[in-house]
């Protein structure tokens, strides 16, 4: 009898443990953990561009999560995104002139809605509207202001070859796109080092359709996005003569290293190590 009882108890323990593990997985490690079912109120915000914002993305004030994106839809009659934010009732004192912005956490992280407080004495009510919004700034656009623009490659018919010399081609390799005004117009045919001149000789195969490129155009090695692949961008010059097969482009600009560029903007380049947003705590007390 005691033998039978012991295995019954063991089996019961096993089943309880199994279901406890299931409950733990489902509630603590999945998205259910984020969903707290407290009362919320809904606020409307319209954005011109929400980038990669998704439903259930967090809404943050001063970095603190106060709610989530309830729904995303295209507003009727206008090319703007209508985003409904479900904000926790505990945070009911958001001024009506607050600004909602679509932010990206980190360089490559997910996007979220950040709300910056305004100064009005009136608070936003359920179903109210955040009139002031700032749209997501795609990284590509921001970088595109510094560099050339990215874009898809194109099918290639016949092509003609021109060469260009660069002092540094970065990670450019044969097959990389050649772009003008962001449109792919050809491919890099070969990248060779020239021992005599201590630079890189790059041969570009440009589609025959694009044979109206002035021969004083300049070639530059750009990077698509932050960690994207590199390509050759051609910036047209003003000469009446056009590039022909076998020509060499004289004006070139070598690959810029992202590290160099950032170093030029940021003075405190020495890594502080801690990249997390520890803005809410003034002293890193818990780090010991």
């Amino acid at each position: 009898m005691s033998q039978r009882k012991s295995y019954a108890v063991g089996t019961g323990l096993f089943i309880v443990l199994g279901f406890a593990a299931l409950g733990y997985l489902a509630t603590q490690t999945s998205s259910v953990a984020n969903r707290h079912h407290g009362a919320t109120y809904t606020v409307d915000a319209k954005f011109e561009n929400i980038g990669q914002l998704k439903e259930r993305a967090p809404v943050k004030i001063a970095g603190v999560r106060v709610g989530e994106v309830a729904s995303i839809a295209l507003a009727k009659g206008a090319p703007v995104a209508d985003v409904k934010l479900a904000i926790d009732k505990r945070y009911a004192d958001i001024p009506v002139d607050s600004v909602a912005t679509v932010f990206t956490s980190g360089l490559l992280g997910d996007q979220y809605v950040g709300i910056e407080y305004g100064h009005a004495r009136q608070y936003i009510a359920d179903g109210g509207k955040l009139g002031l919004t700032r749209s997501s700034q795609p990284l590509e656009e921001m970088l595109g202001k510094f560099f050339g623009a990215g874009g898809g490659a194109d099918a290639i018919g016949g092509s003609y070859d021109v060469t260009a010399r660069f002092s540094n081609v970065g990670t450019l390799s044969a097959g990389s796109p050649v772009k003008m005004a962001g449109v792919a117009i050809g491919r890099v045919l070969s990248v060779q080092a020239e021992p005599g001149k201590l630079d890189a000789l790059v041969t570009l195969a440009i589609d025959n359709r694009y044979n109206q490129i002035p021969d004083d155009s300049s070639a530059a090695v750009f990077t698509s996005g932050l960690i994207g692949s590199q390509y050759v961008a051609i910036q047209p010059g003003g000469s009446p003569d056009m590039l022909k097969n076998g020509d060499e482009m004289i004006l070139t600009q070598s690959a810029m290293q992202l590290e160099d560029l950032i170093g030029k903007f940021l003075v405190n380049g020495s890594g502080s190590g801690d990249k997390k947003d520890s803005g809410s705590s003034a002293t890193p007390a818990g780090k010991h």
Binding site: L22, L25, A26, Q28, S30, S31, V32, A33, N34
Partner: peptide, 14 residues
Amino acid sequence: WSNMTDTVEVWQDI
């Protein structure tokens, strides 16, 4: 934990 809870879906994954 927060990256995990952001990505794991109860229905899809568990």
